[in-house]
Structures are given as C-alpha cells and as structure tokens.
C-alpha cells in the first residue's frame, strides 16, 4: 500500500481562532491524509520540531490575527534549517491579497483565504507533494 500523505495542521502565535484549522484538519483526514493538529499557541520552533518528529510531508498553518507576515517566514526558515527541504508549507487565514506575494517569496507554497473550499486544499496537496 502506498504511504499516506502526512499533514501537520498548526496554529502559530497567540491567535485562538481555530474553527478554520479544525475544519481543514478534518476535511484533510476525510480525504485520506494522516493529520496531526498542534493545538493553539505554538511557537515557530515548536511547529518546526513537531514537523520533524512527526515526519510530515505538509505543514498547513492558520493565522487570523494579522501576525502572518512575521510568523510564517520564521516557521519556513526553521523547517528548512532542520533539513526538511521537501516539506510543502501552506498557509491560510485572514490574509489580505497584498500580503500574499511576500509570503510566497518567503517559501509559503500557497495561501488559502476565507471562502476557500476544503477540496481546493486537498487538490493542491495531492498535486504538490
């Protein structure tokens, strides 16, 4: 049997809004992925470490507080520093369009904003892992 794709769903920063993260986590699980959810208030270091320990293929982060320009790039750098060159890193939340180019520049493969069907995220992961 083919190895299932492993996804870490993570909430960096202090934001407590995790409706989206939980809905996405469940949709990814229903789509056949193995999903680990970190819970709230994870530091970038904790997320990178969890990605390493859990040997994931994908890290999916959610921020609704506006801290994404500061926190997303830090997580990407820590993950790469730990030698996980191929891990696909995606993000979502309340993120203005104007912020997306810089996030992609920093290594976030795709940013999913409010209203995105979970099916689009599943498709993106299947096509890019």
């Amino acid at each position: 049997m083919e190895k299932r794709i492993r996804v870490l769903v993570a909430k960096p920063g202090l934001d407590g809004h995790d409706r989206g993260a939980k809905v996405v986590a469940r949709a990814l699980r229903d789509a056949g992925f193995e999903v680990i959810y970190t819970g709230l208030r994870q530091t970038p270091e904790q997320i990178a470490e969890a990605a390493l320990q859990e040997d994931v293929n994908v890290v999916a982060m959610s921020i609704l507080s506006g801290a994404h320009p500061q926190l997303f790039p830090v997580v990407v750098n820590l993950i790469r520093e730990k030698g996980m060159k191929d891990v696909l890193i995606i993000g979502g939340g309340v993120i203005p369009d104007g912020d997306i180019p810089a996030l992609k520049e920093a290594g976030i493969a795709e940013v999913f904003t409010p209203g995105t069907p979970t099916g689009d995220i599943v498709k993106f992961i299947n096509e890019n892992v």
Binding site: G13, R41, S65, G66, A67, P69, Q70
Partner: peptide, 10 residues
C-alpha cells in the same frame, strides 16, 4: 518573546 508579531494586531 512569545508576543513577537502579535503586538497591537487585533
């Protein structure tokens, strides 16, 4: 340190 990126945001 834990406040990084969140100060004054929401």
């Amino acid at each position: 340190a834990i406040s990084a990126g969140e100060v004054g945001k929401v």
